[in-house]
Design a protein around this nucleic acid. Sequence first.
DNA 1: CTGAAAGCGCTTACAG
DNA 2: CTGAAAGCGCTTACAG
Lengths: 334, 334
Amino acid sequence: MAITIKDIAKRANVSTATVSRVINNKSEGISPQTREYIQSIIKELNYQPNALARGLITRKTSTIGLILPDITNPFFPDLVRGIEDAANKAGYSVFLGNSDDNAKKEKKYVQLMTEKKVDGIIFSSTAKYSKDLYDELIAADIPVVLIDRGESGDAYSGVYMKNEEGAYMATKHLLEQNHTRIGCISGPPSVQNSQDRVEGYKRALAEAGISVQESWIVSGGYRIDGGYEVARKMLADGEVTAIFACNDLMAIGVYEAAQELGKSIPRDVSVVGFDDIRLISTLMPKLTTIRQPAYQMGKEAAKILIQSIKKKGIKQKVVYWEPELMIRQSTTKL
Amino acid sequence: MAITIKDIAKRANVSTATVSRVINNKSEGISPQTREYIQSIIKELNYQPNALARGLITRKTSTIGLILPDITNPFFPDLVRGIEDAANKAGYSVFLGNSDDNAKKEKKYVQLMTEKKVDGIIFSSTAKYSKDLYDELIAADIPVVLIDRGESGDAYSGVYMKNEEGAYMATKHLLEQNHTRIGCISGPPSVQNSQDRVEGYKRALAEAGISVQESWIVSGGYRIDGGYEVARKMLADGEVTAIFACNDLMAIGVYEAAQELGKSIPRDVSVVGFDDIRLISTLMPKLTTIRQPAYQMGKEAAKILIQSIKKKGIKQKVVYWEPELMIRQSTTKL
DNA sequence: CTGAAAGCGCTTACAG
DNA sequence: CTGAAAGCGCTTACAG
């Protein structure tokens, strides 16, 4: 058996209450001698408090949950790292759950984490029905912060990218290079951030007085092969001189399609991506893209969550991150 | 307040013991009617057991810890996903910790997880001193399984790649293409799997009757820029016609150096990597590499851990995974 | 400055 | 088949 507070108390000839006080640095009302004495025997016996017992009584576990679609999507590792670093620094542990944007899995994780009494949850979900989960959590007094994907508006705390703005910048960059026939490979139609990116694309075109061709906006599902499929058609048609891919993964697909069709980037097609994920630097020519500071966003989300855990009843906080256009080699003047 | 087993008991006019029994599907010794009745009111009140209280008494939390160097290293997300999937399927949650291969952080995570009473830990560490942590854990009756990196031999359960074998295959492939002057960019000298890979490289050369030049073995620290630095020198010297990079990240660095020096892959240099990480497919020409099935390895590690959690006292189990040579476009006959 | 006691929400022998 | 009671390892008023 592990050694407990009772063992310490017995050994030190004090009550468990006193031991508990020194462990928690409570009320100065404790003589320096006993404090030191108890501390010495805590060290001697290498005592480690049982977090379950403590959590049961304090109703705080210093644990947070993180539910995201898929850690394997290269956008997420940096996000997770940011969350983990900030959480750990503040003394919190994090539970990880991959939902695959699947309602059942999300629900299961929420339940699991709730039973394990997490102090709060960071949620990245695209699903419409997830709203019920957020509400449930909040009703149970478990703070939630949404990240990257989620409900627009400020009903919930959240950390997002200015997706519309980023897409606008990407498209405008293309327009400034004299492109007018610009394809847009969007993400899954149901995903909010994809819709926002499409909006930004449209706004840039509209501003430039170019009428939007709905046939130039096609979903590639945020996946490499989706981007590839869509790009193959767009490029074969030759309708378009530039492509804005709503994420980098799909931009990779565009590169593959271009290579297959013997088209050169940027000479034959200019392409802009979105995310600036790690290892995108291996693409040649280097991809011009919209940078999303995943690590920072994760860090911020964790901070907000921990704040609202500590000061109960804090009202929600929403942060929108500024996109940044990283001009590299995949675009050129027409 | 959340609703408790007491509330259920009161409402159902039974004792908490009975409620507990139906929750845990215990001893058939319970009448179908009461069981059903209690279940109905559990559902009605949407009762969720408190895992802290349960864990406190059962000494099982259905939680495992995962400590790895850095989720941001592209080798790990798949590993994590494999672990998470297997764990979740078996009803376990996972705590994530990034150690940066740093002794203090590792120790901190072990302590945190121990206090939170994880049932077991999956550990990926390169550090020599981590051995003490494993022993501590095992002494505290917390099963450990090492993954990818760790103590060689079978003192601990572990899931590893046959690193020596993989490197041997990579090098042999190069030899079969008539290369004899083959550079080796190794990982950090202290990392076991890097040492093993270097051994495999040496064995292949020895077998081919080629004397090993120690000056051709240089560490790139498993990082892109490290691979780049080393490759720049190797390629500038022109001493070498092929490079075996001990991981894909460093192979990326080789590509960058080659491009900068105006050398063509594979015409001027052949290169083989190790890992077959995601997105390596974006490298052009496509990288020939040794495939490491990260997802499967993670899954296996979780299964082994859960097994040893369930059947206490099971003796350790060590699994070595077979490497696979993925021949693509970065190597050619001399 | 310190202790006795109650209680957090469960499970599990032990009775009956 | 079911209940009373003890106990897991802590913390926290309440006394003194």
